[in-house]
Design a protein around this nucleic acid. Structure first.
Lengths: 192, 192
DNA sequence: GACATTATACCAAACGATCGGTACAGTAAA
DNA sequence: TTTACTGTACCGATCGTTTGGTATAATGTC
């Protein structure tokens, strides 16, 4: 079997257990491959496995996020499509984000560069959509960051509260919040 | 020396390296205590060390967040005080959140219950402040979640982008966003 | 005060288990 | 016969943990 076959399984393991927690014993059991076979497909060991998963996620990002966002048409609808795909990918908030897992694990330095560019790519793509609607580039970029923040934060909270509701709500509200016009005054609030 | 002396050091280590990455060797070196001495203070081993850190964070939360939020006075100002303390604690976005680290590490199950109640306590305290301003309880609770989401997401992004700017911006904008009145119509946006 | 006892704080060394990784013989397919 | 792949057995290193013990200071006893 080609090594690409095992990428989804590896993704699942690293998301679930983290870099350290996903031991070769677990990987061997989950893939049904002996250690020797794993090292045949991934001579670089665990690091190469994670790298392969990150490459897979890069192409996933391109196909499921960047390309839909790059199409012509309604900005709101395009962002909604992105949210649909994110909802799928994170299984409605039940699965954590591998990026966050890697960033907060002990091997953060090894994969930091790759994760950084993936984040930047995603944020820039969102910003570009908003710029096309006439939004100022600076604000659009902020909104792109806000989207990433909302998704990542919601995933953390969903894990922490052991309930996916916050993530689902964020995903549902996100397109409207991103397209929303800026507040006219600085601090409009209900009451003091 | 009493074991409380070593809590800040342990907090730093677990934040920086994660549960798995903070090995006893590193802990021994950082604290200046031999492994056996660590087991004198924390007979339960690493788990008890983390537990002690979480207990410390629980009292930190009470003193620096819950009590200021519980005072009388301007809601906006109280939330701003909370943000100041958070900014301190996370060192302007340069330090990750131990809760997230634990939730995404391999030992998530062990500390999940404790982290969950701490999250809930924090969110409820924010919601209570907003309810006092006349906000509907349901919306107030959503805003409490939004605050946690924004902080956690911003910390992840700050780690991922290797730049604390997103966190600082979120912290600065947070009080206004929480107090902000609900949108009149559902999806007001600039352009299609 | 002098002495025995106990509690606290600490450490060097070693424990078994598991880690990621490798060597190599063997099998299956071309 | 070559190439691709896999199972077994094994490696050194490091993991968290435990053992056995030593100082030091406090506490009780006479």
């Amino acid at each position: 079997m080609p090594k690409e076959t095992y990428i989804p399984c590896l993704l699942r393991l690293f998301r679930q257990y983290g870099y350290d927690g996903a031991t070769l014993a677990k990987i061997s059991e989950a893939t049904g491959l002996g250690k020797a076979s794993l090292y045949h497909h991934f001579p670089g060991g665990k690091d190469e496995m994670v790298e392969a998963v990150l490459n897979f996620l890069e192409s996933w990002l391109d196909q499921n996020i960047l390309q839909p966002l790059g199409k012509t048409g309604d900005a709101y609808t395009r962002l909604q499509q992105m949210c649909d795909r994110l909802n799928e990918f994170y299984e409605g908030g039940e699965q954590p984000c591998l990026f966050a897992v890697l960033l907060l694990g002990s091997a953060r330095d090894v994969f930091h560069a790759k994760v950084k560019t993936l984040f930047q790519t995603w944020i820039n793509a969102i910003a570009q959509v908003l710029i096309e609607t006439g939004m100022q580039p600076e604000l659009a970029h902020q909104r792109g960051e806000d989207a990433a923040i909302a998704v990542q934060g919601a995933l953390i909270l969903a894990q922490g509260l052991d309930h996916p509701a916050p993530f689902r709500r964020v995903i549902q509200q996100l397109p409207a919040q991103l397209c929303q016009a800026e507040m006219s005054d600085n601090t409009p609030r209900t009451t003091l």
